[in-house]
Design a protein around this nucleic acid. Structure first.
Lengths: 251, 251
DNA sequence: AGTGCAGCGTACCGTACGGTACGGTTCCGA
DNA sequence: TCGGAACCGTACCGTACGGTACGCTGCACT
């Protein structure tokens, strides 16, 4: 069924990865922040990600990863302990690559807020539609069961939380400036998220191809709609009634 | 790892299913519309769904299904041809159960439109959050790869299309009545979908539990927001500008 | 130069799964 | 009453995968 993976498939996308052996002496561990992976391990994780993107979970066997990364299965188990450990490491590794760019407080005003919101929205759309993100989400979702979903928790924590905090902080700063009007930040964030992403994410996860949804246009329209719902200046219309459902929750 | 499935697990949810053997003579096939499955096959598919809900894809082995449904593996392969055939049959079977209730054109007016939209939204939220729907979506998403996603296509066709057509028809009837204002029906539908579902679906797929998001309140708020964006009567505010992005698409 | 260790490649093992085959049983129709 | 067909239960087979063990190479440090 799954054809042999003899040649290092999907090797065209990632950079050459420095072909030298990259041996390590004793305790030469590069702590890049949270997790501490050696460069060799990072390269292995990169190969594993390529394998996952190309062939899905079925292609992500320990033997396949070892072959694609030119390492031994024994090393894999020594470094990551387990297949699940490898999967978790892939998630944390990928999320550590995506982070960066915190973008401190810049200019004020409605136009600035709008442009910053649009920027985050565009990057969000591009990340969600990316091959690696889709593959990892498919992996975590496929593993998830009724109660337990360890990979899903990891992905929610590493993938969605950062975006939520960034967007929420931006929304609250807009509210402090009197540009936005909402009661519950989390509710406002979710509305914004829904306007930006809609059902695009699930459709992509299910294998659909986005038929010409340009991220920039989508983001602009979503931010426009959000301002029409929660904006405060006159050219976006006064917010007639609050929408934060925090007070009318029944459950 | 997966514990033995000796007792018919997850049998508490579904009805007794008529314990008699239910043998079939020659060509006694009950054509329920699209697919033609015998009652026995339906019962087997029900068991398979219970197994999938309870244990995820890993638990959905042919031997497990045969044991849970008290049938032989040979019959499974005879009826569904293949493991993938079984999975596809599960999807079509479940979607055939959910369909029903077409709800022809009822009363007119803004309140009627609003209540019908809310009704569809509530049912949509309840279906999406249901155990079986989540399990099937996880299955299809987990199977999906880069280009090919047969189960995903099936799920999109049987699960999302009906809702889109129903909601779209309702939106267009509202526009014909002068209650709604939008240019592109598909765009308006997607905005509405995003307002209703937000990121709830993906969060649930990733194993998150919805912290007291009541479907009724969620639906009411979403429809309210949609009317604020695309409504036409004065108590919802005039639609200042169109939002359908059909004309400003770049891709 | 010599020792040690990290890591590569491969061989190996047990299990579990998809798919097939076979005997026995029950029911339907003639 | 007698065939035949559908079907159940189980045994069986080949493969593939997770995980472990072993021998070898080559760099690092002394």
């Amino acid at each position: 069924m799954a054809r042999r993976i003899a040649t290092p498939a999907a090797g065209a996308t990632q950079p050459p990865v420095d072909e030298r052996p990259l041996r390590l002496a004793s305790t030469e561990i590069i702590a890049t922040g949270n997790e501490a992976y050696t460069p060799r391990q990072n390269a292995v994780l990169e190969s594993a990600l390529g394998l996952l993107v190309e062939g899905g979970e079925r292609a992500l066997t320990t033997a396949g990863v070892a072959r694609a990364a030119n390492c031994s299965k024994e090393s894999l188990y020594k470094w990551f302990g387990d297949r699940d450990g490898l999967l978790a490491a892939m998630i944390t590794f990928q999320s550590s690559k995506v982070k960066a760019e915190a973008a401190g407080p810049g200019a004020n005003g409605r136009a600035a807020l709008r442009s910053r919101l649009e920027g985050i929205a565009v990057s969000l759309l591009k990340v969600l539609a990316g091959d690696v993100s889709l593959a990892l989400n498919r992996l975590a979702i496929g593993q998830a069961r009724r109660g337990e979903a360890d990979l899903g928790l990891l992905l929610r924590e590493h993938g969605r939380k950062p975006i939520e905090t960034r967007l929420s902080a931006l929304l609250e700063s807009g509210r402090r400036e009197g540009l936005l009007d909402f009661a519950d930040t989390r509710e406002a964030y979710r509305t914004l998220y829904g306007l930006i992403v809609r059902d695009m994410h699930v459709r992509l996860l299910l294998g659909d191809s986005l038929d010409g949804e340009a991220p920039a246009a989508r983001a602009a329209q979503a931010i426009d709609e959000f301002f029409r719902l929660h904006g405060r200046e006159e050219d976006t219309g006064p917010a007639r009634e609050r929408t934060g459902a925090g007070n009318e929750r029944t459950g």
